[in-house]
Amino acid sequence: MSFDNNTHRITAIDWLRGIVMMLMALDHASWFFNEQRIFADSVLLYEPGVHFAADQFFTRWITHICAPTFIFLAGASIAVSNFQRRRQGMSGAVIDRELLMRGAFIALLDIVLFSLVGGKPVLQVLYAIGISMMLMVYLQRLGTEAVFWLAILIIAGGESLLMLLWQPGGDVPLWLALTFAPDFGATYTVLYPALPWLGMMMLGWVFGQWLLTRPSGATAPHRLLLTCGWLALTLFVIVRGLDGYGNLFMHLEGNTLVHWLHVSKYPPSLAYTLLELGLMAIVLSLLMRLESFNKTINRNNPVLIFGQTALFFYLAHFVILRIMEIFFERGSLEQTYVITLLTLVILYPVCRAYRTLKWRYPQSLLRFL
């Protein structure tokens, strides 16, 4: 595991972030151009008994890892960034202010920019990330152990509270939509209520703290991740197999792989969180092993560049997909994959140039992207 000399980042984390950004581009290209796209990841969206085409289902399913991974890694990056800034002599008050400002900026992108484009307030993943980052300013003061157990309580016990307050299809007050329950109303849409995703960011922060403070002789990070990943997947099998608590009304309707993997993302069920964070931990473990074998890191690798410019990538890829609508109509899944590849090819030099500019002016407003 190594730190990039220019950005003080862990390379394996940026690789993983780059991978999920590419998968996210596939999901959004499917949203724009795939006539048969599946969007049934919630009891609010799914009609029991519907049969899914395997290619369409797995195209959607492989992108499920994106949001949990990005939010978990954002938590880890907060811990690493704060450590680096303290080492550079920055005061705690300035570090907290920077994190508050960045979180507010990210949340406002959803609340203002994407809502204007959508014609109504639409709160998606940037809202959840931004609000969670702002809350982390205060939560991290509780200490690593307290944050860990609070994260476990939110992830494992949040469904208990939600089921007391919410019934699918019923009215959702604004405060509940912003915190726990999604709402697909006519006046506003909340896809990512903040608190379930906050738990994932808290876990990421705990992992980042452990990376920085683990004593010599402690378990290697890749081994810890591998162990935690398999544990999470084992718990997923148990929770999904019992088909009760932890599934958020998305019950098993058969014993096929599609039935087992069709879990609730909106809001994230315990089964969904265990599955996606488990897979993420295993992939990150493998990337850390790969990093340890690489004597030199190719700084211009597309995956690394996308991972180091993730928020800029997120904004820019929507612009490119909108432009693509001039040349392509909605059509087949094969066309969706081609458009995704074209989008990534176009984004590579743009993101590379942006990264160069951002590194050249590290204290400019570009640091928020």
Rank of each mutant, 00 (worst) to 15 (best):
M1E: 12
M1P: 12
D4P: 05
D4C: 11
D4W: 02
N6I: 10
N6Y: 13
T7R: 15
H8M: 12
R9V: 00
T11L: 09
R17W: 05
R17L: 02
L23H: 04
W31D: 10
F32H: 11
E35A: 14
I38W: 04
A40V: 10
S42F: 06
V43D: 10
E47A: 14
P48E: 09
G49N: 03
V50F: 12
H51A: 14
A54Y: 14
Q56M: 10
R60A: 14
W61Y: 15
T63H: 02
T63I: 00
A67Q: 09
P68A: 05
P68H: 03
T69D: 05
F70W: 07
I71P: 00
F72A: 08
F72K: 00
A74F: 07
G75L: 00
I78S: 06
I78N: 08
N82C: 12
F83D: 15
R85W: 11
R87F: 09
G89E: 14
D96I: 04
G103S: 02
A104Q: 04
D110M: 07
L113N: 07
S115H: 04
G118E: 01
G118P: 01
K120A: 06
V125L: 05
L126D: 09
G130Y: 00
L135E: 03
L139I: 09
Q140C: 13
F148P: 00
F148D: 07
L150F: 12
L150K: 00
I152W: 09
G157S: 00
M163V: 11
L165Y: 06
P168C: 07
G169Y: 08
P173W: 11
L178Q: 01
A181L: 00
P182K: 00
T187Q: 13
T189V: 15
V190T: 03
Y192E: 04
G199R: 03
M202I: 03
G204W: 01
G204N: 01
F207L: 03
Q209L: 01
S216H: 13
A218C: 04
L225I: 01
C228Q: 14
W230P: 05
T234E: 06
T234I: 10
F236D: 02
F236S: 06
I238D: 04
V239H: 01
L242E: 13
Y245Q: 03
G246W: 01
L248E: 05
L248F: 11
H251G: 11
G254I: 03
T256E: 04
H259L: 01
H259M: 05
W260S: 08
L261S: 05
L261K: 03
K265M: 14
P267G: 02
S269G: 07
S269P: 03
A271F: 06
L274P: 00
L277R: 06
L277W: 03
L279C: 13
L279P: 00
M280K: 06
I282C: 09
S285Q: 04
L287Y: 08
M288V: 02
L290E: 09
P302H: 09
V303G: 11
V303I: 15
L304N: 05
F312S: 06
V319W: 11
I320Y: 10
I323N: 13
S332I: 02
L333P: 05
Q335R: 06
T336P: 03
Y337G: 07
T340L: 10
T340K: 07
L342T: 06
L342G: 15
T343N: 15
L344Q: 13
L344T: 02
I346S: 13
L347N: 08
R352V: 07
R352D: 11
Y354W: 15
R355E: 12
R355L: 15
K358N: 10
R360F: 12
S364H: 08
S364N: 08
R367K: 15
